[in-house]
Amino acid sequence: MNFKVFIPAMLSASLKTLSLFSLTLLFSLPLGLILCFARMSKKKVLNLPAKIYILLMRGTPLMLQLMFIFYGLNPIFGVQPPRFASAVIAFALNYAAYFAEIYRSGIISIPTGQYDAGKVLGFSKRKTFTIIILPQVIKRVLPTMSNEFMTLIKDTSLAQTIVIVEIMRTTEKYANVYVSAIPFGVAAIFYLVMNAGIGKAFSFTEKKLSYYK
């Protein structure tokens, strides 16, 4: 085992993993909120497509969606998204569906009295949502979100199927080169460290928001 080669390779692979992770969140968190509004809308033209979309995204494997975007768009529509962009698009579209449902669970858990109080005090619908409802929703969905963030870190390993050199792809390569199981252990540690960081960040935020019930 030549760690001087292997570890730097793993570090640069981690960078790939982390950038896929952050870009996915950057797009899917707001997209999920929009999707959630559509899903909760009373208008069928909005809620029906949202329901179908969420079913499709949650009901088929992320790996299939990923392959479809990278390999399938070209033969059908004649567009070929680049490798990394394909991964970001597939991950963001998929995670937005889960986030939409998480937001929805948070929103429906807020007592209707909060909306009534907002209305009676003269807040517009938009202000009622942003000032009164959303902050409470964020607090309520944090535990579920931390689950989802950790899953996303691990799901990035699926990107290797379209040959993105992230942690798992690098691990397999060096395991083959050195005919060794050590890279798998190292990969586990890399994932663990990242997720421990995420866990820590979430418990910190939860604590920050624990001043009210």
């Binding site: 007592p111 009295g113 109080a117 009676v120 009164i132 409470q136 009210y212 019930k213």
Partner: peptide, 16 residues
């Protein structure tokens, strides 16, 4: 709406 105020049965204060 602003001319009338309402104190709710369960008060509905903003917990945050």
């Amino acid at each position: 709406g602003l001319k009338v105020g309402l104190v709710f049965q369960h008060f509905n204060l903003f917990p945050h």
